[in-house]
């Protein structure tokens, strides 16, 4: 089987400071990978390099495109990469307002993504948008409200609907449950898990919350100071951590 995403030797420095160094891994269709580490460990830098938001200093991000098979997205042209970002990729930001257009309606936020890939029929766009709002548990009568009128959890669910409406194959998530109440987090996790399974999505989730990765991720990568220090099955890394830092991380979690 061809990996959906094959990351090879990704390195990004900020002057003398290392963002992330020599990161390599393969992600297969339907797999969910978690990246954990403390603030400044390089996990967001890595995510942004993979998603094309940052240009890495070295390395390849090879994505198995629908039309041409595996292509290095770092060296492909900007329009090609933008098209990929609109069709096959999705990016869920920690702060929903970074991923939403706050001055247009909820339905418009979802519909805009559809129009970006060529949908033109208003009735159909509205119908698909309504279906997606329903899937993320936003009632249809809120469709014409702006996201500014939504709670944090609703904004996050709207962001997910906006991202998944075009049927992407790979979703990048940056702290998707950060800043939400615990009860809202649980609902969002449940929703994400259901969507990942039903749509056969692959996902890369950056978080510092070990409970989130235990429930969502199949595999785990632990980062420290820009380096990957441990990888493996999520439950194996959490229950039998090998590296000193991972052991510290796991043992530092407060038990509820």
């Amino acid at each position: 089987m061809t990996p959906l995403l094959s990351v090879q030797g990704i390195t990004k420095t900020y002057g003398a400071h290392i963002g992330c160094a020599d990161v390599s891994f393969d992600l297969y269709p339907g797999e969910v990978m978690g990246i954990v580490g403390e603030s400044g460990s390089g996990k967001s830098t890595l995510l942004n390099c993979m998603a094309g938001h940052l240009v890495p200093d070295a390395g390849q991000v090879v994505f198995d495109t629908r039309s041409d098979g595996p292509r290095d997205t770092v060296t492909m042209s900007e329009p090609e990469r933008r098209m990929l970002a609109r069709t096959d990729w999705a990016f869920v930001h920690q702060h929903a307002r970074d991923g939403l257009r706050m001055n247009i309606s909820a339905g418009g936020n979802v519909g805009e993504r559809l129009m970006a890939v060529g949908a033109r029929h208003y009735g159909q766009i509205r119908e698909v948008a309504a279906d997606w709002l329903d899937r993320v548990e936003i009632h249809e009568d809120r469709m014409d409200d702006r996201p500014t009128a939504f709670s944090g959890g609703m904004q996050q669910r709207l962001q997910i609907a906006r991202n998944l409406v075009t049927g992407p194959r790979l979703v990048f998530m940056d702290e998707p449950t950060g800043g939400l109440d615990v009860s809202v987090q649980a609902r969002l996790l449940d929703l994400l898990r259901g969507l990942v399974r039903k749509m056969g999505l692959s996902a890369i989730i950056v978080t510092h919350d070990l409970a989130v990765v235990r429930l969502l991720a199949d595999r785990l990568m632990v980062m420290k100071d820009g380096h990957v220090i441990e990888t493996g099955l999520t439950d194996q890394v959490l229950d039998d951590p090998q590296h000193a830092y991972t052991q510290l991380l796991v043992s530092s979690v407060l038990q509820v």
Partner: peptide, 9 residues
């Protein structure tokens, strides 16, 4: 048992 399940290395 956990090693058989791959939960422990």
């Amino acid at each position: 048992m956990r090693m058989i399940y791959g939960n422990y290395l």
